[in-house]
């Protein structure tokens, strides 16, 4: 068996699926690289010549949920080559991103969401915009997405269970959507709700589950308007699989993964702090904020380090966890004056 030190593993080995996408973009990046060596962090990926940083491997290709999706995915703005919308850390391979999921509606095991979501329906899909907004209503997803150009972002994802991934998402800034629906001055929080499809979600039917479905999450409005907050409709250049939260999900990379709610059907603007599912279940374990913080340990899991996936028993990558998952520059100001040990 070949045993490698973590440092010997090149990003290109871990993500063979990263492929050349657009020749033109390659030439442009190549020229910049020749011009000045400043772009070095992005070098490994740039050398793969990718405009989009990564594409799903051909043998795992996904079909569009409905024909209109194809047009939507025809033009995607590639991720820049610098933080915070991009990281040069090795991507978590596509097959791990789509096979290792927490999505309790489909079951408790990490493999349940990919194995048991075959009947999940993502078309037609509508999202209800409710509460303190000028333009409430129930909108078809196609109309929700219409004015937004899709872009790629490569974010770290840190789960409260002390593992982490690096994922190339496709989507658009949450702030752009919020502005469109014109929240009123009373909109101080945004609440999100996941779909409940009893017939296609075995976890929802389990008699021993104590979650009060639907799953709910929430953000303060200034958190929601932050440039990092992202609504994803794809990953690895392709459509979101059910297990990753199809057809539309939240990505808030400075918070533990459970805040990044999946398969959204309702966005509710509120005056007061909404209840959130995990906080309802165990308030002493899961706070409303749930910002990644190596110094505030969760009762179940130490948070000072994380297992960067994929792990291999013989070359394990355990790295120190960073405050706000390394996105402090963008978000630390949101929590100025707050005691993060109390507002966990």
């Amino acid at each position: 068996m070949l045993v490698k030190k973590p440092a010997d593993i090149q990003p290109s080995e871990i993500t063979p699926e990263s492929v050349y996408r657009r020749r033109r973009e390659f030439l442009r990046t190549g020229a910049t690289l020749l011009g000045g060596g400043a772009l070095l962090p992005g070098l490994a990926l740039a050398q793969q010549g990718d405009a989009l940083k990564a594409a799903a491997p051909a043998d795992l290709a996904r079909t569009p949920p409905a024909p209109w999706w194809e047009g939507k995915f025809a033009a995607i703005e590639p991720a820049p080559s610098s933080e915070p919308f991009f990281t040069s850390e090795a991507l978590t391979p596509y097959r791990d991103v789509i096979r290792y999921n927490n999505f309790y509606e489909f079951g408790m095991n990490k493999s349940d969401p990919s194995n048991r979501s075959g009947d999940f329906r993502v078309d037609p899909w509508s999202v209800e915009i409710a509460g303190e907004v000028a333009r409430p209503g129930r909108y078809h997803l196609e109309d929700i997405l219409k004015p937004h150009a899709l872009e790629e972002r490569v974010y770290r994802l840190r789960c409260v269970e002390a593992w982490s991934m690096v994922i190339p998402w496709i989507g658009f800034p949450l702030a752009d959507l919020i502005k469109r629906f014109e929240p009123t001055g009373n909109a101080r929080y945004v609440e999100f709700e996941t779909v409940v499809q009893r017939d296609s979600m075995p976890g929802v039917r389990s008699p021993f589950s104590i979650i009060d479905w639907p799953y709910r999450e929430g953000l303060r409005i200034d958190e929601a308007m932050n440039e990092l907050s992202f609504l994803a409709v794809g990953l690895y250049g392709s459509y979101l699989p059910a297990q990753n939260g199809a057809p539309i999900r939240l990505v808030v990379p400075w918070k533990y993964g459970f805040k990044s709610i999946k398969s959204i059907v309702r966005i509710h603007f509120r005056k007061t702090q909404p209840n959130t599912s995990w906080n309802d279940l165990q308030a002493n374990e899961y706070g409303f904020y749930a910002n990644v913080n190596p110094e505030v340990h969760h009762p179940r899991w130490r948070q000072d380090t994380e297992r960067r996936l994929p792990q291999n028993l013989f070359s394990r990558r355990v790295i120190p966890t960073r405050l706000f998952n390394g996105y402090g520059e963008q978000v630390a100001h949101l929590y100025q004056g707050m005691d993060l040990a109390r507002h966990y």
Binding site: R99, K110, S111, R307, P310, Q311, N312, L313, R316
Partner: peptide, 10 residues
């Protein structure tokens, strides 16, 4: 390597 990406936990 059937334990997937997080063999420690599994």
């Amino acid at each position: 390597s059937d334990f997937g990406p997080d063999p420690a936990q599994e």
